[in-house]
Write a protein that binds this DNA or RNA. Structure first.
Lengths: 346, 346
DNA sequence: CTGAAAGCGCTTACAG
DNA sequence: CTGAAAGCGCTTACAG
């Protein structure tokens, strides 16, 4: 509070240079913690900077260097609770490195996503796409200009962070099998969903391995309502347990079953996916397979920074195999909606 | 796909100028949709731009103009569901105007908030603070450099967007009174919370007006656990209905009451606040007072842009009274957790 | 270790 | 209507 501010306009390195009696380039070096500045000069500059409460302009810095100090994150739907932890993971990893996170939304549309990505790309050092709706070629095209990392999808030639769903699904099947269930249903996600296909594949395998049968059941939408509507077909399938593509489907299914007089979990077990916010609000609380979304977000950011260093100029992060980072395993969270089968449903 | 790209480096207006055979300044004007460019020239420039798949650099544009095309939004906690709609409202309002939204988090800390705000301010056209933790003077200081709008708080001299809680609270009191309740409890939020104090004030007034008694009950934290812990005191107060500072408290309270054998809503009615995601996952579903958070986010953005225009140079958006935008009323969402009192709790 | 100069990609008075 | 020039606030070779 010693005089400070030029009321309104921010101080520039020129103001500091004048006050400290040095050249602007020296100010730049001193403040950039570059080597080759004498201790006295650095002190002089820092004092002047503090006195003028100087704050570097990230924009002005970005222009000559190309380093914006900003990374973009594009999600399909900001209010989808599955993304919360991902956003948070990326956001805090960014903040920890003094980077700024730009959050954008594609509204579940591939074309919007593409437009948004192109718009924010110039002012970022790279972009993270969470469960992208864009086509593989579009993503690769984007990756030519600046590094791209995708979460929850595998794209040839692009850095990819995908949680390993197998452990969680295997544990779920074991858990259900151990509790007397033999016929399983899978409430599927959207038909084109890469993730839904992966989850079903993995579930089917795990069931086969356990000597159980699994039947896929389509849904109208991955929502509460979609889960409700599927309840009839689930019962008709004579399954006594269902794994659902996501928690909303699971909750919808559970409520409709209960409304139809089916006791959960005594007569039917329900397992969701993603362990979203609120999955413990239900009665009974929902058993769910949790993905390490927060870690996915943080890891994606880390990979982005890594590939930012490596290949400059040429396409970034070139590698043919998607990454499957070992600590990012899914986990089964057993709660109240799954358990021993008491009365066979026939 | 006609030749395009200089493989790697983006095209600049100089490339366009060369290709179109005009001066870069003309390119700038043509692409900026400025008046005073002949139709032919404009066409020429646009074709060249398309051919080079030109995309203007927002950074380079921001430097001479000061217009960054970016607005900042700082929330205390990204994963707090109360903010989801606010974020979404601001995000879509920004996107609709071709603006980019930078999302940052303060981790509930006033000092972090201040640091973050200062860091992102230079690369924004202004900042929205949602339920800020900073002090009033700090916020005013920030507002000197670029416009600031606060949501959910009133700060002298700062544009402020606060939902009108009165309608929702009044309706809740009426609803409960009409259902035979006479003694009410209020589960309070954090002691320093501006919002909690407002909600309690309004609730007390509404109760007085309806000739009912209201008793405030402190909580340890605005969480499920905080709600659970308060259940004993609520019962001891001999209230038969509670309004809670937020939905998490309400859900925690409801579950603990149910665990203690109290029937909801037959013996006790619970009303939450904010109508968060998942408040309809509970059994019974939660009655809650919904705030128009999405509109708050959108309105805040709108105000920010408005004050960006007005007073340039001098402190922005100077007005002594906080805004209370009329359409932003709270609404009571009646669900299953509130209703007619059947068996008085004594 | 420090200074003087050029340049990042735009915009915008100022001339013509 | 169009061009030439200066400048936004930095960084970074290039000299010394």
């Amino acid at each position: 509070m010693v005089g400070s501010d030029t009321a309104g306009g921010r101080a520039t390195i020129y103001d500091i240079a004048k006050l400290a009696g040095v050249n602007p380039s020296t100010v730049s070096r001193a403040l950039g913690h570059q080597p080759g500045v004498s201790v006295e000069t650095r002190k002089l500059v820092e004092d002047a900077a503090a006195q003028l409460s100087f704050r570097v302009s990230p924009l002005a810095r970005a222009l000559p260097t190309g380093r914006t100090g900003t990374v973009g994150l594009i999600v399909a739907d900001i209010t989808n609770p599955s993304y919360f932890d991902m956003i948070r993971g990326a956001q805090s990893a960014a903040a920890a490195r003094g980077l700024t996170l730009v959050l954008a939304e594609s509204s579940e549309s591939g074309s919007t996503e593409s437009v948004v990505a192109q718009r924010i790309q110039p002012s970022t050092d790279g972009i993270i796409l969470a469960s992208p709706r864009m086509s593989d070629p579009e993503i690769r095209e984007l990756n030519k200009a600046k590094p791209v990392v995708v979460i929850n999808r595998s794209v040839e030639g692009i850095e990819s962070v995908v949680p390993d769903i197998e452990p969680g699904i295997r544990d779920a099947v074991r858990h259900l099998a151990a509790n007397g269930h033999t016929r399983f249903a899978f409430l599927a996600g959207p038909g084109q969903s890469w993730i839904s296909a992966r989850r079903w594949d993995s579930f089917r395998e795990a069931c086969e391995w356990a000597g159980r049968t699994a039947q896929p059941i389509p849904t109208l939408a991955p929502t509460l309502e979609g889960g409700r509507r599927a309840a009839g077909e689930v019962l008709a399938s004579r399954a006594t347990a269902a794994l659902c593509y996501n928690d909303l489907l699971a909750i919808g299914l559970m409520r409709e079953l209960q409304a139809a007089g089916v006791k959960v979990p005594d007569e039917f077990s329900v397992v969701g996916f993603d362990n979203i916010f609120g999955s413990d609000f239900t009665t009974p609380t929902l058993t769910s397979i949790a993905s390490p979304f927060k870690e996915c977000g943080a890891t994606a950011l880390q990979r982005l920074l890594a590939s930012r260093q490596g290949t400059e100029g040429s396409p970034h992060g070139v590698r043919s195999t998607p990454l499957r980072v070992s600590p990012m395993r899914t986990t089964l969270i057993v709660r109240g909606s799954s358990g021993r089968l008491l009365a066979p449903s026939t």
